[in-house]
């Protein structure tokens, strides 16, 4: 439904130009959750902003049901704007402090729902939908808890009846129990409204819980993408492996910080990305070829795609007679909640 093709986004700064998103191809299917993970500065939020058309790309295309929406502006863009919505990390910052709950939720309805009574009905229904008591309608954001504020932000996002919601770390500002409630709500809303989520996160546990497929980004590129259980539980790219290994253990018997091997060093400067494979400076497996030649994202075992010279190629039996190695061919139907 949403297709991103060879997207490149650059930022001009005083210190030079940064290629924040470097040729990303992604597809998001109706009703699925695609998790996007990576360290700060890997380009995942820039990618989200480009999808929202808040940041114009340097090149590449964004297609919604086959229509190129990359450069639509003004009135022509309106129908597409409604179909792709976003929820930000910090609801305290994304909500207007002077708008009541009801007014904040009504605002995205203004262009399409002209009748005030009908709008009020829609607002009440949306509040029910996200589990906000109607008694909260006249509250201001500062009179709400963090979880309630994020529910308001979610109600605003689903108000125009979108097909795609970009969730940029939607629970990382919340306590564990509130995280659970908001994640449960997002799953319920997805089922009820058939939403597709682009779920951006750095908490592997949260992404593991939510995603159908997971894409891993490193310095502006996708380095691995595939079914969540393959990518998270049996990562193929050495960076994915390091990222998953860095995630805190579920219990003390599964791993202790004092004894584990952690990924050394930090993300290289995006102003001067390393030649060849961008990860070779931190990669425990890097060979000479990795320093010279950037690996392309190509098909690997289990129907996933990996950008690593050392990743094993798909075996004949798992991928019979693959002639057109596109992501779509590798898609396996995913198990949904009953």
């Amino acid at each position: 439904m949403l297709t991103i093709e060879k997207l490149r986004v650059t930022h001009r700064t005083r210190n030079g130009t940064v290629l924040a998103v470097d040729g990303v191809d992604l597809t998001l299917r109706r009703g699925e959750t695609l998790g996007l993970v990576g360290e700060s500065g890997c380009g995942k939020s820039t990618l989200a902003r480009a999808v929202m058309r808040l940041t114009p790309p340097a090149s590449g295309r964004i297609l919604l049901d086959g229509t190129d929406v990359t450069r639509l502006r003004g009135r022509a863009a309106a129908p597409f704007t409604a179909r792709v919505q976003m929820v930000f990390q910090d609801p305290a910052a994304s909500l207007d402090p002077r708008y009541t709950v009801a007014r904040a939720i009504a605002e995205p309805l203004l262009p399409t729902v002209r009748d005030a009574a009908e709008r009020a009905r829609r607002v009440a229904a949306l509040m029910d939908d996200v589990g906000l008591a109607r008694a909260l309608a006249d509250r201001l954001p500062h009179q709400l808890s963090g979880g309630q504020r994020q529910r308001v932000a979610i109600a605003r996002a689903i108000a125009p009846r979108p097909d795609v919601v970009v969730l940029d770390e939607p629970v990382s500002a919340l306590d564990v129990s509130l995280q659970a409630q908001v994640l449960n709500l997002l799953v319920d809303l997805q089922e009820r409204h058939g939403l597709a989520y682009l779920f951006i996160g750095h908490d592997i546990g949260v992404v593991r819980h939510m995603a159908d497929r997971v894409a891993v980004m490193y310095l502006g590129r996708i380095v691995e993408i595939g079914d969540w259980s393959d990518v998270v539980d049996e990562p193929a790219h050495p960076y994915t492996r390091a990222l998953m290994a860095a995630a805190p253990a579920a219990n003390p018997d599964a791993g202790r910080a004092a004894t584990r091997t952690v990924l050394a060093g930090e993300l290289p400067s995006p102003f001067a990305p390393p030649p060849g494979c961008a990860f070779h400076t931190r990669c425990p497996l890097a060979v000479e070829r990795c320093r010279r030649e950037a690996p392309a994202l190509r098909d690997a075992a289990d129907g996933r795609r990996v950008a690593c010279h050392l990743a094993p190629a798909p075996s004949a039996e798992t991928n019979p007679a693959q002639t057109n190695p596109t992501e779509a061919n590798n898609f396996r139907p995913l198990r949904r909640l009953p």
Binding site: L132, A133, L144, S145, S177, N184, H209
Partner: peptide, 22 residues
């Protein structure tokens, strides 16, 4: 299926009675 997460029902200090949000 994706398991449902437990609700710890921390009491809300900011008067969110019946809101279900906290």
């Amino acid at each position: 299926p994706r398991p449902r997460l437990a609700d710890t029902s921390a009491p809300c200090l900011i008067g969110g009675e019946g809101s279900g949000a906290c």
